[in-house]
Nucleic acid binder design. Structure first.
Lengths: 66, 66
DNA sequence: CGAATGTGTCAAACATGTTTTACATATTTA
DNA sequence: TAAATATGTAAAACATGTTTGACACATTCG
């Protein structure tokens, strides 16, 4: 699963730590997701999308196409 | 997290077992998700949405609004 | 330069999602 | 009515996601 978090986050000029705080998760979690270490939970995916003013369907590109 | 899986699945007249097979997970997984025992992984959420011809953002209603 | 901020990473512990096997009960259909 | 199909549920094992604390390195800013 690929995602567009980093670009959008940098567009909004907020740090991984700030996004983590907005989503109420640790900074390591955001970092791991941006670097494709693992996928976020569905709830966290919604939180990230919301805080980056977009939708899950736009932010994430599932394996196997959608 | 609430979801509209059951209605959509019944609209398409497929069983939990059939949807499970299409999504390549066990029937118990689909059953647990329909009955809000836990949320699917992000990848599985995409697979379910795809097989029900809809989007994650339409299918799932995250806790805390979106 | 030195301090502060941002990013990458690691390990251990803990939380959540998924499979398998199994059984009970209901609903449909031959 | 009997057989087949569909659903709910449970426990154990296993896989994945998340936290905490820690450290390294780079970049920015006073």
């Amino acid at each position: 699963m690929h995602n567009h978090i980093r670009v959008l986050r940098e567009d909004k000029k907020i740090s991984q730590g700030k996004l983590a705080e907005l989503c109420r998760v640790s900074r390591q979690t955001i970092n791991a997701i941006e670097n494709n270490k693992y996928d976020p939970s569905l709830q966290l995916a919604f939180d990230i999308a919301k805080n980056l003013d977009t939708t899950i369907d736009w932010l994430f590109l599932p394996k196997g196409g959608n």
